[in-house]
Measured scan of single mutants.
Amino acid sequence: RGFLEKAAVKKMAKAIMADPNKADEVYKKWADKGYTLTQMSNFLKSKTAGKYDRVYNGYVIHLD
């Protein structure tokens, strides 16, 4: 289950990176699912340092 969630989160993160207008909708879905910042950090780990920082930081702001 965790692997599928991670894959889904990364897919949506890539969608945000391609079209930032989708961010609020995606952040709301993640918040509704109760994803914590720790979970998001783990889901968005990448071999490329900083690749998903913008998405993660946007989610931090959304939760605030």
Rank of each mutant, 00 (worst) to 15 (best):
E5A: 08
T48G: 06
K29M: 15
N42P: 01
I61W: 08
K47N: 13
K45V: 08
K45H: 10
D24T: 12
G50Y: 04
A13Q: 01
K22F: 08
A23L: 03
D19E: 07
Q39F: 04
D32T: 08
N21S: 14
K29R: 12
N42F: 12
K51M: 10
V60S: 08
A18H: 10
T48E: 13
V9E: 01
G2Q: 14
L44Y: 01
S46E: 07
M12E: 14
L63M: 06
Y35W: 05
G58R: 02
A31W: 05
P20C: 11
N21A: 13
N57G: 07
D19H: 05
I61L: 13
N21E: 11
K29V: 15
D24W: 08
Y52C: 03
V60L: 10
T38I: 11
A7H: 13
F3I: 11
L37T: 09
K11G: 07
N57Q: 14
A7M: 13
S46H: 07
K45S: 14
A23Y: 02
M40G: 01
E5S: 05
M40K: 00
Y27W: 02
T38V: 14
A23P: 01
T48H: 11
K10G: 03
K28W: 04
N42Y: 13
P20W: 15
K45E: 13
A23V: 03
P20M: 06
A7R: 15
A15W: 07
Y56R: 02
F3L: 12
T36M: 02
N42T: 08
A8M: 14
K29W: 10
Y35S: 00
D64Q: 15
K47G: 14
I61D: 13
G34K: 06
Q39M: 13
S41Y: 12
N57L: 13
G50F: 05
F3Q: 11
L44W: 01
L4H: 12
M17I: 11
H62Y: 15
K33Q: 13
E25A: 11
N42I: 12
T36W: 02
A31P: 00
K28S: 10
K10S: 04
I61G: 08
K22P: 01
Y59T: 01
G34C: 08
W30Q: 00
S41Q: 13
A15R: 09
A31Y: 09
S46L: 05
I16Y: 01
L44H: 00
L63C: 08
A8L: 13
M17C: 09
A23C: 07
G50C: 08
K11V: 07
Y35T: 02
A13G: 03
V9W: 01
A49H: 11
W30H: 00
A13C: 05
M17T: 03
L44V: 01
K14F: 06
